[in-house]
Each structure stands twice: as C-alpha cells, then as structure tokens.
Design a protein around this nucleic acid. Structure first.
Lengths: 260, 260
DNA sequence: CGCCGCATTGACGTTCGTCAAGTCTAGTGG
DNA sequence: CCACTAGACTTGACGAACGTCAATGCGGCG
C-alpha cells in the first residue's frame, strides 16, 4: 500500500474501487456490472444493449504514477475510460512551454483530442497509480451504429468536454488568482463528491506547479493564494490535504465582479 | 497555436459566396453542389452517399449583423454550418462578465456546446450579415448510422473543436499580450487563406473589445499592441483593415519563450 | 452637421511574475 | 534510528506587464 489513503467517502459509493472483488479474482470485469457505469456509459439501456456495451472495452491497462498513458504525436487508436486513479493532460508548444489542459478522475474519458487527426495532440500522465479501460475507437463507431444510446452518449461526452473548456477559457480570460483557485477547488470537490467522497475535504494529486499551469498562474502565486485563503479561514491546508471550511465564501469569491 | 489543416481551395473560391448564382435564382442549394462542402462535409463520399448527405440540411437561415443565432439556455435542436458571414460565440458567467470563446467563419460548424444538455450554453452572434445551414441534430444522428463517413466526420469536428480550445488554453494560460495578438492574427489569416482570401490582408469583423475578450486582454491593451506592431513595421492597421507585412516576425513572436 | 460608437494614447495603480532564501516532508541509506 | 537529500512548498522583496481611468481623435450614419 504505497498510496496515501483517499478521503473517506461520505456515502459508500466506492468503498473498494470499481468492481474490485471480481477483479481480484481475475474475472472479466464488464461495463454491465461496473459501478462506474453511470459515469462513463449511457443510462437507460435495455438488457441486450447492456451486454453489447461490454464489447466496447477491449482490455484494461494499469498505469504507474508518473507514467504516460499516451503522448502527443502517438497514433490514436482508443479512448480511455478511467477506472481508478487520477490523470493530467497537457499540451506543449513548439517553444517548450506547456499547459495543463485538465485533470481527470474515475469515470471520465480521455483521448478525445486524438480523433481529428488520428494522432494524439496532448500527453496524458497518471498522477497516481491508475487503471483505464481501453476502448478501441473503431469498435465504438461500429457499436454506436447499432446502439443508438451509445452514439448519443459519445456526442454528449465530446460536447461536455467542449463546454468544460469554455469554462476554463472564461476562467483564464477573465478571473483573478483568487477567483481561479476558488473555482478550481470547488470544481474538484464537486466532482469528488459526485464519486462518493467528502464535500469538504480533498487530497490534491498534483503539485502547485501543475495547478498553476492549469490556472495560468505561477506556482508561487498558487501558494500565496492558498495561504491567503488559510488566513481568511476559508480553508485548511496541510500539504496536499485541503479542508474547505467555508464553501459559501469560496463560491462568492468565484462570482464576484472584478473590483468588488 | 497550431491550426488543423483545412482542405485548401486552389484559387478564389469565395469571391461571391458559396453557390451564389443558384441561390440567387431561388433554386435549392444542396450540400452535394455547395463549394463549401470540403470544409463542412466529409470527403470521399460515393455518389449515393452524397445525395443522402443533402438531407442533413433542413433549411437555411439568414442572420443580420448583430443578431443572435442561438442564445445560452435555448433548447438545442440543430447544429449550424456557416455558409456566409462571421460569428462570435461567447459564454457569460453568473456575475455578468463574459468571454468570447471563438470566432467562426464560412464552412465552420457551431452549436456543438448544446449537445450535452439539450440546451445551448453560449450565445452565437453574427458579426456581419450571415447565412447558415440548419442541420437538425437528430437527423445527423440517423444519417450517420447509415453513412459511415458522416459519423466519423461528426466526431472529427467535435475533436477539432476540443483541440482548438486546447490551443486557446495554452494562449490564455501562458502567453503575453504580443504573443496572443500575433497568434490571433496568424490564425485568422490562415483560415481566411484556406478560403481563398489573401495571405497577408484581412478585415477584422470584430471590435478591439471582442478581440480582447477572446484573448483575455482589455481593449486598450489590444489597441496598444496593434500600435506596437505598426511601429515595428510588422503590420499596417487602418481601422479594421490589417495588412501583414512580416509574417515571419509575427511567427517568431508567437514562438518566443517568455523573457527572450 | 452633429452625434455615437469605436479606437487611440497617456498617466497611474494593481496584480502577478521573478528571483532568491529558507522550510518542510517523504524517502533513502548508513 | 537518525542523518541526509531532493523535491515540493512557503515567503519576502522587487519589478514588469497589464488593467484602470480619463481625455481625445476619428469615421460612419442618420
């Protein structure tokens, strides 16, 4: 057990990770009985569609902390559904500077950037030991011709990513450091809560520098802003452990007009 | 910022707008004989697929300059392919500040943000008189079950938008004002060139404020940066008319490391 | 002709980046 | 078990880049 324990779920949605018992026995873990299904697969399927959906996942793959799932320039073959663990994706400019474009957790899909030119255009790095479901893209295409709901689901996933990025553009384009960090924390804790974790506590899986890259800030600014939040009694921070003491204030920071 | 290659028309394809002669006669303009087809539809279709593709477009719609094609919160029913004209899309935060998320021109598809929740999440505003092809989304879904290439095409369009937004995030997160504006101008002129316009001249359809919103800058900074480019002999600017005198320098501005 | 929206320019202030020093923690090896 | 180290984090001092506020110019259109 090399991983620091994750915060205890307030609701026991994910007590031992997705379908862990079956997995431990070496049995095939199907989407149809994966408890992350609601996050990555369409809902309201018929029994028959459900079993067909299992075909989407070809294999699973374990990724060590720090290892790369796919890299900019690599041929695109599959999408990946995260079963466990935490990823970042980042793009790199020609001059070397790079930008974290997102942090992804269990139930989320990565690799969508690769579809347009059959090559990935960003790197996906595991920030903790992780496991992903490998979903060959041609298989998704074939299946979504039969299973109507799957087709729509793929569209929705891509659309959701577009909308998410709109939000990031708003953040990067018009928010100040405090607002950015507040929005970031609220977003993270909200997504974790949807996965059964606490509404108020979280463990950051990324460094200050990675947060800064995502938020368009330098690591020192991220650190200072954390310190300010602590001074103001809004959060408690011990290393990467964060406890949110005052969600309302955090929310008001995000929504306040510049200059107010 | 890298731009995904668009099939480049050999010569002046758009001196008078797509299929304008037919249109003027009141004849039905089909995708199959629209000269923007290469931009918004899949290539390499069979003759039969080509005629089926025509079914995607239900109607066309004219939008006056300043008018709104769709608005945040409206029900999502269709995607729109731009036939003529120029649009901006922008998201609005609860506190009222808004962010231009993109500028779109002929051959580009807008409305993808609406898929995920059946409601649009941004506004699309015409920056000049425009015409769009209305493509009901359920019709696209039905058709892409039959026409394989269409299905893949829809995926590619959405993926391209995701990749484009990654580029914007890089720009907003790590570039300085000059770099942002240089990248913006190069991107615009490149896309216009792919549509048969000049490689060196362009007419901005948006205000300095809209440029600023897109680039995460204030309008004064945009104006000042233009002035600096003019001083340096990189561009000529007369109102919204821009002539690029030194593309190479502009490119080097985009790619230079901070501090160099 | 005069108005209005857009654009430019200047003076000044704020925010955040830069540079540097120093602290804390987890991990390693004696 | 403790010392040591490397990486991550914090904090301070300072400066650069950009925002803010305000005055002015310009062009298009009724």
């Amino acid at each position: 057990m090399k991983e620091t324990p994750v915060p205890a779920p307030s609701v026991n949605l994910l007590p031992s990770g997705p379908t862990e018992p079956l997995d431990a026995l070496g049995l095939k873990v199907a989407c149809s009985n994966c408890n992350l299904r609601e996050l990555c697969m369409p809902v309201g399927l018929t029994a028959e569609e459900l079993t067909r959906i299992d075909e989407v996942v070809a294999t699973r793959r374990k990724i060590k902390r720090g290892a790369i799932l796919f890299r900019n320039g690599e041929a695109f073959l599959s999408l990946f559904a995260i079963r466990t663990g935490f990823f970042k994706t980042c793009v790199t400019a020609e001059d070397g500077r790079d930008q974290v474009t997102g942090f992804q957790m269990a139930g989320e899909i990565i690799g969508l950037d690769g579809i347009v030119n059959d090559h990935h255009t960003c790197d996906a790095v595991a920030l903790e030991d992780a496991e992903v479901c490998v979903m060959p893209f041609d298989r998704i295409g074939d299946l979504s011709r039969d299973v109507n709901a799957l087709q729509h689901h793929v569209h929705r996933i891509m659309s959701r990513e577009i909308v998410r990025e709109h939000g990031v553009m708003l953040l990067l384009g018009s928010m100040r450091a405090e607002e950015r960090l507040a929005a970031f924390l609220l977003n993270l804790v909200q997504r974790l809560h949807a996965r059964g974790f606490s509404r108020h506590e979280l463990v950051l899986r990324m460094t200050r520098e990675e947060i800064g890259s995502y938020l368009g800030l330098k690591l020192e600014t991220v650190s200072r802003t954390f310190s300010k939040f602590v001074e103001d009694g809004i959060v408690e921070v011990r290393q990467r452990h964060v406890r949110i003491l005052d969600t309302d204030t955090l929310r008001s920071i995000v929504n306040r007009q510049a200059g107010v």
